[in-house]
């Protein structure tokens, strides 16, 4: 360290300029650092609160692991885990498959590609927004266009938003619809696959399906891996869709009680902020475990071509 200092802190005009430049660098970092405090302080505060009984109005009381113990005896907590897992494990593969499919179609050299790309990307910008969830609620309403459409075929559609058997599936469809952002990443990945592989395969008489399995999938696997992890993490944290769809109730019959929605209810409606903090940290662990498992599994299916 002293050696490094010696070198940097040397006298002479060049060194002075460098010191000056360093200071500018730190100055530019300052906003980030201040912003970081806004993250770090609540971060550790919530870790502390997770071990307390805290009702927002009185000082927190230390209760050790009580919140965590209580969680696994709380049927609504378990319900929220079930909803979140179902949502994640159904919607993530579906939306990635949709993203890959559309990306492959667009990659075949469609005219006006930028337009299509933007059109397909748009929903992923809007999907979590309040306005679109409200719109979705209307579309799937009892007299919405989905049921009107089904009506043409003589099918009486269910009350999508109020029937506990259908409410979550409607939100899954909404999630799948927002495949745009993984799609754009897939598209970028597809364009990096050298065409000569396909040309060589075509010469050898490989079918399209064979080309997809033997060239596209392996070469795209790092991108799939990336998209999978991003989508898993985002999906575990779903909040807005559930909150807006049923005004924060998690209804009908708790069928859309997402983990973060229940966390919010506990923290802000029922004044159990200690419990809510414990839930937040448990979610962190759950996400870490699934991310870790995905990384471990990557050894078997992710291929880096260099």
């Amino acid at each position: 360290m002293p050696a490094a200092r010696e070198r940097r802190g040397g006298r002479g005009p060049a060194a002075g300029r460098r010191r000056h430049r360093d200071r500018a660098g730190y100055l530019f970092l300052l906003p980030w650092f201040l912003g970081m405090l806004l993250v770090v302080i609540p971060f550790f505060a919530s870790l502390y609160l997770a071990f307390t009984d805290y009702n927002l109005l009185n000082d927190p009381k230390w209760i050790g692991f009580e919140n965590f113990r209580e969680m696994f005896a709380d049927p609504l907590y378990l319900q929220s885990l079930k909803v979140t897992f179902t949502y994640t494990f159904v919607s993530v593969p579906l939306s990635l498959a949709a993203a890959l499919l559309v990306a492959m179609v667009l990659n075949r050299g469609v005219k006006g590609l930028p337009v299509y790309r933007a059109v397909f990307y748009l929903p992923s910008l809007l999907g979590a927004s309040v306005a679109v969830v409200l719109l979705w609620r209307e579309i799937f309403g009892r007299e919405g266009i989905v049921n009107a459409f089904l009506g043409w075929f003589g099918v009486q559609g269910p009350s999508w938003t109020t029937d506990p058997d259908y409410a979550l599936s409607m939100l899954i469809v909404l999630h799948v619809w927002t495949f745009g952002s993984p799609m754009v990443i897939f598209l970028a990945g597809l364009r990096q696959i050298p065409t000569m592989y396909y040309e060589a395969a075509a010469v050898d008489g490989a079918s399209r399906w064979r080309q997809f399995r033997s060239i596209t999938l392996p070469l795209l696997s790092p991108i799939i891996f990336f998209n999978l992890i991003q989508s898993l993490i985002a999906s575990f944290q779903t909040f807005t869709q559930g909150f807006v769809m049923n005004n924060g109730s998690g209804g009908p019959a708790n069928s859309t009680l997402f983990y973060n929605l229940y966390l919010y209810q506990q923290g802000f409606n029922q004044f159990h902020m200690g419990y809510a903090s414990a839930m937040a940290w448990t979610l962190l662990i759950v996400i870490a475990v699934f991310t870790g498992l995905t990384f471990l599994s990557g050894k078997y299916w992710v291929h880096y071509d260099n």
């Binding site: 993250v39 609540p42 971060f43 505060a45 919530s46 870790l47 609160l49 997770a50 993490i233 575990f236 944290q237 909040f239 973060n260 966390l263 919010y264 923290g267 902020m273 809510a276 903090s277 839930m279 937040a280 940290w281 979610l283 962190l284 996400i287 870490a288």
Partner: peptide
């Protein structure tokens, strides 16, 4: 993933 906890 820690987002929600930060609100606390």
């Amino acid at each position: 993933a820690l987002g929600p906890g930060l609100a606390a």
